[in-house]
Design a protein around this nucleic acid. Sequence first.
DNA 1: CGATGGTTTGACTTATCTCAAGATGGGTGG
DNA 2: CCACCCATCTTGAGATAAGTCAAACCATCG
Lengths: 259, 259
Amino acid sequence: MVGFQDDPGGGNKSTLLHALVRKLSALGNLSREDIAFIEATKAEWKPFRKGAEIVRVGDRYKAVLVMCEGWAYRCHTFSNGRRQILGFVLPGDFIALHVNFPRAADHSVVAICKSTVAMIPFARIEEIHRNHPRIAAALSYSTAEDHMRLGAHVSRLGRRDSYERMAHFLLELWDRLNVANGAVSDSFDLPLTQEEIGDLLGMTVVHVNRTLKRLEASGLIVRQRRRIRIADLAALKALADYDSAPGSIVVPNAGQGIS
Amino acid sequence: MVGFQDDPGGGNKSTLLHALVRKLSALGNLSREDIAFIEATKAEWKPFRKGAEIVRVGDRYKAVLVMCEGWAYRCHTFSNGRRQILGFVLPGDFIALHVNFPRAADHSVVAICKSTVAMIPFARIEEIHRNHPRIAAALSYSTAEDHMRLGAHVSRLGRRDSYERMAHFLLELWDRLNVANGAVSDSFDLPLTQEEIGDLLGMTVVHVNRTLKRLEASGLIVRQRRRIRIADLAALKALADYDSAPGSIVVPNAGQGIS
DNA sequence: CGATGGTTTGACTTATCTCAAGATGGGTGG
DNA sequence: CCACCCATCTTGAGATAAGTCAAACCATCG
């Protein structure tokens, strides 16, 4: 389980980029050298408390950010106070990956629990693009995956009812966590409040609750505090019309398939 | 008006990339040379009939695609037959922009009217990245904009009711068309059926119709056949909580501001 | 001028929200 | 170590936005 708990997470520097390495390895065939190069990255490691804004709307990015430990959510806030969560950032995910053009954040990124973020200088990424084509390709994959995930989210919100949405969301999260952990389990911890889930799926806390209970009553999932167990994978997938292939990316010899 | 009509659009090769040049110029300061380089691009120009699939789910991209004339929509189709439109592709937009990794489409792209698409060899884009840094930066901007637009769409679907959604969508389209046309007008043609708008905004044709009429009855817009006139910009923006800055991208000396 | 696809309208059903009140549970200070 | 407190979760009842079904209308085009 890649740490999302509120534990100290004071892992020594050398392990902080493991989640990133695991993810990139799943996206492309990295050589031993490539991996060493990533691990040798010099970065500023910044800790964030639960609820802290890692990125604020309008902030000008000054580095490439990688989530090392912890979870965060990306979020739009409306002038009427409502908010829409665009997605969650898990260990190994880029919070911001871009080079060669100035950019300011159009959404904030907020830590869900105690987290550690690596701030990697742009120059390092540029070096990857110049001299490490396999890593560069994996970065492109990663960006493309983020884009596709956002597209999947649009479909979730636009054309699925709350029941299907919830099922779809749980499946996506489960898939991502399996990749992050490098192993497949039938259950996972969900360190999110029902309000956060509601802000992601565009529904009320009340309705999130009822929907979750309905899924449980139907025997599709089992909940034990904030842990979810997938009780009937096939039924869940059928319900959500879920396609475990995040779709689309043709990975020649990637890590073990997801489910 | 950059042609979206069903007119022949048989523009000679040299003008087909104008929309792209205009858009990229708006995103970054291109030199005379840069522009000449883009215009000298050798591409295969492919015509599509209304309703034709420009990209089919699962297709392997073999080139970078640019919409030259016409409109298209990106779309997910569900196994139950429903569909979700992810967004529209306007003249000058990339249909697919990626290099250095194999990729298959996770959504289809369908021509809304007679269209012309440029298929640009990957090598040309790689050359841009090697030798034309300003163009490369503009391409990155463009990709980032697409991503932000998708995020805005998520917010539209998740936390706005149908009335706000429609207002927000019309404003976004209006902004984009103003950029594409290089001029600001208070009205624009909307070559979309209400069903397509519904599939974009996650609502029924019936409800699209009622919503549109409500906007009109309130004096926010005026409709004359498929032409929309923004009758009360301030009210529309307030209603939609619309931020005309697609946000976020810091463009040093870009073309004239949008609105 | 009749087909055809798109738009408009009405009447009824349903999913989801709102408001409001309890229940739970884990964390903190005494 | 206990008791209290706050955030979170649960549940109920009534209100409303949006969906469904069905029919009429309208415009465009062969």
